[in-house]
Design a protein around this nucleic acid. Sequence first.
RNA 1: UGGCCCGUGGUGCAAUCGGUAGCACGCCUGACUCUGGAUCAGGAGGUUCUAGGUUCGAGUCCUAGCGGGCCAGCCA
Length: 568
Amino acid sequence: MTDTIEKPSLNFVEQIIEDDLASNKWDGRVQTRFPPEPNGYLHIGHAKSICLNFGIAEKYGGGGNLRFDDTNPIKEEGEYVDAIEKDIRWLGFNLDDRVLFASDYFEQFYEHAIALIRAGKAYVCDLTSEQTREYRGTLTSPGKDSPHRDRSVDENLDLFQRMRKGEFPDGTRTLRAKIDMASPNFNLRDPVMYRILHADHHRTGSDWCIYPMYDWAHGLEDTIERVTHSVCTLEFENHRPLYDWFLDALDVFHPQQIEFARLNLGFTVMSKRKLLELVRDGHVEGWDDPRMPTLSAFRRRGYTAEAIRNFCDRIGVARFNSRIDLAVLENCIREDLNKRAPRVMCVLNPLRVVIENYPEGQVEELDGINNPEDASAGERKIPFSRVLYIERNDFLEDAPKKFFRLAPGREVRLRYAYFVTCTQVIKDDNGEIVELRCTYDPATRGGSAPDGRKVKGTIHWVSADHAVDAEVRLYDRLFTEENPDKTKENTSYLDCLNPESLTTLSNCKLESSWRSAADATTWSDRIVRVQFERTGYFCLDPTTSDTKPIFNRTVTLRDTWAKMQKRS
RNA sequence: UGGCCCGUGGUGCAAUCGGUAGCACGCCUGACUCUGGAUCAGGAGGUUCUAGGUUCGAGUCCUAGCGGGCCAGCCA
């Protein structure tokens, strides 16, 4: 038999790596790195990069470093370092001893700078930042040489050493590479390598008052770690000539920089600046507010690491800036949770139902299946009694034909229980429905009728006397626009925040046996996840209490009824 | 009106580096069902941005145009 199973196609980065492996370019070695700046929390766009970089390392038997690119003490904090590490481990990547810091290389950067000065390829410049900008020129006109460009090596050495010693105030001098002020690529117009910053660094404290710029530091970090493939996002494309220039000028091990398109996701923003703003200005409750696109937020919302990694695999890697449909992500988490999450009944918006012909004081234990997708999850007993709660929107007084739920005179099945028929609607003085009266058919115990009659609808319910009170938080997209970054003139992404992104339901009625179902499945991150039948997937919030559990909605179930309603 | 990069069904990616397009999501139909869930079966949808060129043959190569992205921090 000819095996024609297609091998999965490689993305362009893997293509490069396999070519390099074939030509033995790096002695068969593959070394990647993920280099976040600890100035914010990781978001799902970072997950794409993490999966790419660490995924490649795993796939080709290479190494993948987590390297904190901590070269700007003003924006960086230890809190972010811890959060970033936690998120990556949660995603399931083994970091071992490969957690590294650019700040550990500061001394080496300094020595390399001295070498560059000695080679006549770097100079100390006394221009202010405004002057530097003026001298840089524009898109269409070349820049002008700095008046300090031709200082002697000795003078440069002396000045640079004194910069390090702290003899000059912030902003008074820089060390710049001597390249080409007329280059059409701005990055080559004598880029700044070091700036003076008398600021405490979260790791090196007050050891330094000069800090390296990204372009100067990054290639050095890569060369020090013997990175072979330095994968970054598209906006660094214009920086690659400079990356190469520094490494060539120093004549050191020279990794290859490869750029790919960052992830954009519908109905959210992905820039760290904007996410920080959302947190700082209180538009959300924190970095892990479940509406955020951060990994800590997805975790708190109930997303699994598996689903996120699967998502990252699915979206592909290319050099084209695109935006992924939110539905793809939702599909990934539903797919995972459908297989694994135990089912439980919870009434979100309770409506009281009295089964008139059911004996008062009687309680029955009915069998419920914990997970129809996984027999090993077992069964549980669910208490049934005369007074129940059902979902308010499972009843309609004037129900259309296509409405398969409860309505006056109509019969539905209570899941795992009995067929019931609505006989009476009780309203308060304002005309609001406060209670339903029903009758049940004792012969339909367990949910099927001996006479073979069918009912179209099955609804969930909870016994009133046994119900556990719960708070449930319903999350929706944070923005009303698919692309909040590109709104109409004079508006910002903040103007399209979705006012209904969070709905808190504090009077939910949860099945008393929910725990035994939930315990049927254990998750590697210890988060408790369940499906509330017919409404969605939920997880226990970290702030939950024993007396009144708090659940976060991860994602709704696919809802064709809602879709039909939307269409008409 | 400078440079660099990109352009394949609604969306995201493939097409083993020249042999006339395939997958996923979405959408539509139907089957089944004690979740209007899940599952299964089927369907619609593409002049591969445009125009030239090279070639027996081009989504793949060349040229031009059009459209989009990035770049003038002592941020990364």
